Amino acid sequence: MLHQSPQAKGKAPIPFNPIGGTVMAAVFEASFASVAYTTATDGIELGAIPAECTVIGVEAISSSLGTISVDVGWIDGTYGDNDDSRNVGDEFIDGVAITSAPAKATTLACLAEGRSGNLRALGAVLSADVAAGAGKKLTVVVHYTT
């Protein structure tokens, strides 16, 4: 099952400022309050990075998810398309534990992705199953610039 944030569902905006050099931050949340996450089959579409923007920072934060690691990267397919066959990469964060502290991408990893003339979808996968429960969520904060 593909879990989608409010941004990925088109129900919340993604910050964008066309003035060059402006740093923006998008806060994406995937809630597991009422829906469980199954490692073997699930992915998470967090949101998208606007066209012509360069990611300069990514931080993944666990809230009550237990002992767990995360991958954060680009997700293939069409942004917002709830298709279970979409795959999530690990370009920014690759298997880093978020149990006791946030995971942060290196600036080098972020800059290596460059900018694109197209909107790019961002996703995550978790290393363990998460049972549904109050307060359980993954938060990913992304800083990017035009």
Rank of each mutant, 00 (worst) to 15 (best):
Q4S: 02
M1D: 05
D90I: 11
C53D: 12
F16V: 03
L119S: 00
S69Y: 08
T107S: 07
P13A: 11
Y144R: 14
F32N: 06
T41F: 06
D71K: 10
A36H: 11
V125T: 07
H143F: 14
D83G: 11
A40V: 13
K104M: 12
N17R: 10
A12K: 13
G73Q: 04
I56V: 11
G20Q: 13
G123C: 00
A97N: 09
A112I: 01
A26H: 12
N82Y: 13
S63T: 12
V70N: 08
V27N: 15
Y79I: 13
S62E: 12
G20S: 14
A131H: 09
K137D: 08
D83F: 12
L119V: 06
P6V: 01
G20C: 09
M24K: 14
G117E: 02
G10A: 02
V142M: 06
T78V: 11
E52C: 15
H3Y: 06
A60P: 05
M1N: 03
S5H: 01
E113V: 03
I14D: 12
V130T: 10
T67E: 14
Q4G: 08
V70T: 06
E29C: 15
T145H: 14
A132F: 01
G135M: 04
A40G: 02
G43M: 08
L111G: 02
G10E: 00
V70F: 13
L126W: 09
I93Y: 02
A12H: 04
N82L: 14
I61E: 11
F28I: 06
S31Q: 14
I14L: 03
G57N: 14
T54K: 14
D83P: 01
I49Q: 06
F92A: 04
